[in-house]
Design a binder for these strands. Sequence first.
RNA 1: CGGGGCGUAGCGCAGUCUGGUAGCGCAUCUGCUUUGGGAGCAGAGGGUCGUAGGUUCAAAUCCUAUCGCCCCGACCA
Length: 569
Amino acid sequence: MRLSLYPITNLKELPADADVISHQLMLRAGLIRRVAAGLYTWLPMGLRVLRKAEAIIREEMNRAGAFELLMPTIQPAELWQESGRWEQFGPELLRLTDRHDRRFVYGPTHEEVITDIARRELKSYRQLPVNFYQIQLKFRDEVRPRFGVMRAREFLMKDAYSFHVDEASLDQGYRLMFDAYTRIFTRMGLKFRAVLADPGAIGGTGSQEFHVLAASGEDAIAFSDGDDYAANLEKAEALPPRTPRPAPQAAATLVATPKTHTIAAVSALLGVPAERCIKTLIVDGSDGGLVALVIRGDHELNAVKAQNLAAVANPLRMADPTRISHALGAQIGFLGPVGLSCPLIVDHSAAALADFVCGANQDDAHLTGVNWARDLAEPVVADLRNVVAGDPSPSGQGTLSIARGIEVGHVFKLGRKYSDALGATVLDEGGKAVAPWMGCYGIGVTRVVAAAIEQNHDAQGIVWPDALAPFDVVLIPMNLHKSTRVRDAADELYRTLTQQGFDVLLDERDARPGVKFADAELYGIPHRVVIGERGLDAGTLEYRSRRATDNEDVPVAELIAFLKSRAQG
RNA sequence: CGGGGCGUAGCGCAGUCUGGUAGCGCAUCUGCUUUGGGAGCAGAGGGUCGUAGGUUCAAAUCCUAUCGCCCCGACCA
């Protein structure tokens, strides 16, 4: 591509509304432009990157034996009513009505449509296992789209769905996809980690997420230093303390704590560390009543663990404050487990405390020196909290650290939830109709691009991994307009490299060298070749990797071999 | 959904408090010079000041409504 012909504009100044680095660089380098909140146009340079990512995904999916198809973005409401998700899905499901008053959704995912295909097309176990995938736009009406293309409302996703006659075959298909994902992200040159995950709203039995590691990641990942255990913070299990609860020493005492309704304030006022205070959180119960969740003052409630409890409403909702003070006789901030008139579920670590501080269930008062089994009943315990760095690993090996990641892929075992709901069946070997086991496997293609930048950039701009770069090589001729030798050499090189299969960007603009260098660096082209009179006299070209700070002189005749050895793309 | 903030030229901003008919930098266009790390000079084009009402002789500026966008929070006991 000749840069003077290429429709690209970059920005020296940052658009004011971009706050994460990938969003800033994608705007500055002219990869994307915002159309509305969470909606972006991919400009030609950006689309090249997106297509490279797609191509890798497509190749590896095909290699794994999956079949590409294309489903519509708009889906009939009936399918969602059949699966029950018409009601289950919240406001992020965009619902539409056509001119005939028929209801549709803009698909946030495609389990219903694929299962509908399956029930029509798959009749026999002989057709299984089979895996269908597509690369298609999705729409989720996020409460708060942010971070540019990273959490957009419309995004490009690769989604795959596999069908199996039994669970063993599903396990096999799942492993196949896990391996394919590992190859995909490895080929993309990304540092990533597969972690155990909560299956969440999509449902199912087993799932793992693939996270690109980056400080700006929205998700916290817990991983062990003792083995390869890694889990989403939502999912990471907090083990019960190994040491038994100490014997009571103090007597339970009512103390006045006016206007002291945070753990920090209580802890400061009473001189008791937060880890010996107790938080009592009131949430809506699954039966419409209230449920108290009790955790240690220095811990955070894990919403996923909480809402997975039978007694707790799913999704988790904090109870209405007015309702709390009416039903429980004290305001938020002064609640505690002693004499509380609603069911109580206590985190392991809170249950292991002795002589702790908690709200007194009357305003402006707390209790100190409280002990389980003496001042109140032995508690019902559960794992309610987020793990913290230093907790023992649930794998039994080592301790946990917490890192940040960007979720770019997710593999699930769905089981038979959708095939049951939509009545998809195949005949098994014995001629009996059985609902196929399903797996589903997603990759956020647009998010991968942003994640790649989050992980690979410097003060000058993007530093593309070879496999994702919009162009492999940028040619920068010096004094182009004056030197026919340079011009001829540049043209020749451009032709040859293109013929050799490189994506080449020739910067033949009549601009100063500094401008060209700066732009090439902003765009993140991995390999740069400068063509100048000086070098030509010596029979050399000047090479510089985007990741390097020094030039290397390469004899003209050896350039192609040299580039081939450097560029893995 | 709660809180905060912002809408003035393609981008970044000033002007709003104190009303008087719109400005700066970058970008763009023209010419000349310049050309190994974001050039210089001279000139030019480009804005219904988000939208709709209202107040006023006069509104970017004051009032009301509305739309859009951004940030923080939504684990607080």
